[in-house]
Design a protein around this nucleic acid. Structure first.
Lengths: 238, 238
DNA sequence: GAGCGATTCAAACATGTGTTTGATAGGCCC
DNA sequence: GGGCCTATCAAACACATGTTTGAATCGCTC
C-alpha cells in the first residue's frame, strides 16, 4: 500500500471549503487555520523569492506549520502555487486599477488614476500587497499558472487600459492601441523589475509613496502627449 | 598558449581557489580551450536560466567539459559568474547602442537608432548575443555583480540616452530627463521581460526581426512626441 | 624515454530540497 | 469507551546540485 501512489488519504482535494469568511465579500483569511496561514505565507515567499527559489520549509516556518502541511493540504508545491495564484487573484479584484479608474468621466483623468493605482500596487512593499508582486513575477518568469494569470488577471486590466486609450484618441488603429498600452505598462513596470538598478543609477531616487506619485504623474503626462500626438499622423509613414 | 602569458595561470590549488579578477588580456575566445568554452557556455546558460537556476552540470555539458572544470579554472560557481559578467562586459562594447547612435547628427534619428539597436540586442535570441540578455537578467534580480554591471555597463548607455534627450528638448530639467530616459528604456524592456505574457495576450505578436523593427519605430515616435510636448509645460502643475 | 607540472576525468561527498511515512492527538457519532 | 476521520508532527527517503578528491592523461623539457 505504500507505493500504490493513489494517495489513499489525500484530503487535499477539499480545497475551496474554508477560504470564505463570515462577511459577504470578504476574502481575507480571518480564520487563522493552518491552511490559511500556509496560503498567506506562501504568497509572501513566492512573491519575494519566486517559485523556484521559494522553499517549502521557509513557507511552513513562517506559517508556524509542519513541513508535511503543504503535502497534506495542497498535495505538492506546484498545487500550492496554483492555489496561491488563484487566491491572490480573488484578492486582486479589490485592487483593480481599472475599477478605480472607471469612477471618473474624463479619459485623461481615467488614465491618470489607472497609472497611479497600478504603480501603487506593484511599488508598495507592504505585507498585504504581495498580490501584484506575485503577478509581476509570474509575468517575468512563466510558471505553470501563467495562462490562468493572463486570462483572468492581466487581460481584463489590459483591455480596460486599451478602452481608455481609444477614448483618448479614437483615430488610433487596433494595433496602435496595443502598442501604446504596452508602452504605458512598460513605463510602470520598469520601476518594479529594475528597481535595484535604478536605485544605484539615481541615488536620489527614493521610490517612497510621494515619489511613486510623482513618477506616475510623469508617466501619465508623457503618455497623454504621445497618445494625443499619435492621431496627427495616421499610422502610415516610410 | 595558456594563461601563462598574462596571468601566471592559476594552479587553482585544490583548496583555496583563487579568482584571477583582473584578466586584462584575452577578450576573444578565439582559442577554443576548455576555459573559453566554459565561459561561452556559462554565458548562455546564465542568460537563459539566471544564476540560481543555471547548473554547473548543464554548463559543462554544453561546453563539452568535465564537471570539475569549473572548480579548476574558476574556483566556484560565483567566481565563474563574475568572470562571465566581466567577459560579457568587454564584448558589450561592440554592441553599444550609444556608439551606433553617435553616427548621425539628427537627434531624433539618434534616438531612433538607439531604440532600434537596444531592442535588437535584447530581443535577439541568437547565440552570440547573450550579453544583453545577461545584463537584463542581472538588472531584474540583483546578483553579486550588479554594482559592476551598473557602474560600467548601464550607466554610460543611460547617460548617452540622456544626452540625446537633452539635445531633443533643452528645456527639460535634469529630473525630467531622468524620468523620460526611464520611460524609454521601460518601453523597450517590457518586450523582453514580459514576453511570455505578451505572446499570450496578443497571439498575433511574433517578435521576429521585422516586428522588433516596427515596435522600435513605435517607441521612437511615441517618445519623440512625449519629449517634444514636455517642453510646452515647464514642470509645474496642480 | 624520464620527469614534472598542467589539465582532464570519473567517482564520491556534503548539503539542501520536495515528498512520503508511520505515529499521535483531538473531535465526533454510535 | 470504541471506532473513525481529520489534522499535525518528527523522522526519513529520494533526488539534484555545488564541490572535492585522487588518479589518469597530456604536453613539454631535459
Amino acid at each position: 500500500m505504500s507505493r500504490t501512489a493513489t494517495a489513499p488519504s489525500r484530503p487535499a482535494s477539499r480545497s475551496a471549503a474554508r477560504v470564505v469568511g463570515s462577511g459577504a465579500g470578504r476574502i481575507e483569511p480571518v480564520d487563522h487555520g493552518t491552511r490559511e496561514r500556509l496560503l498567506d505565507a506562501a504568497g509572501e515567499v513566492f512573491a519575494d523569492r519566486g517559485y523556484e527559489q521559494a522553499t517549502i520549509r521557509d513557507i511552513c516556518r513562517r506559517a508556524g506549520a509542519n513541513i508535511a502541511g503543504v503535502s497534506y493540504h495542497f498535495g505538492d508545491k506546484k498545487a500550492l502555487y496554483i492555489e496561491v495564484i488563484a487566491y491572490a487573484h480573488r484578492c486582486a479584484d479589490e485592487y483593480d486599477p481599472a475599477r478605480e479608474a472607471a469612477g471618473t468621466a474624463d479619459p485623461a483623468e481615467r488614465l491618470r488614476v489607472f497609472v497611479r493605482t497600478f504603480m501603487q500596487r506593484i511599488g508598495h512593499k507592504g505585507r498585504p500587497a504581495w498580490h501584484a508582486r506575485l503577478m509581476a513575477r509570474e509575468m517575468a518568469s512563466p510558471g505553470a499558472a501563467l495562462d490562468q494569470v493572463v486570462r483572468s488577471g492581466v487581460r481584463p486590466k489590459f483591455e480596460a487600459l486599451q478602452a481608455i486609450l481609444r477614448t483618448l484618441n479614437p483615430s488610433l488603429s487596433d494595433r496602435e492601441v496595443e502598442l501604446c498600452a504596452c508602452s504605458i505598462v512598460g513605463q510602470c513596470l520598469i520601476y518594479h523589475h529594475a528597481r535595484p538598478v535604478l536605485t544605484r543609477l539615481f541615488p536620489t531616487l527614493k521610490l517612497d509613496a510621494r515619489e511613486i506619485e510623482r513618477i506616475a504623474e510623469h508617466i501619465t503626462r508623457f503618455s497623454l502627449a504621445a497618445v494625443a500626438a499619435a492621431h496627427r499622423r495616421g499610422g502610415a509613414r516610410p
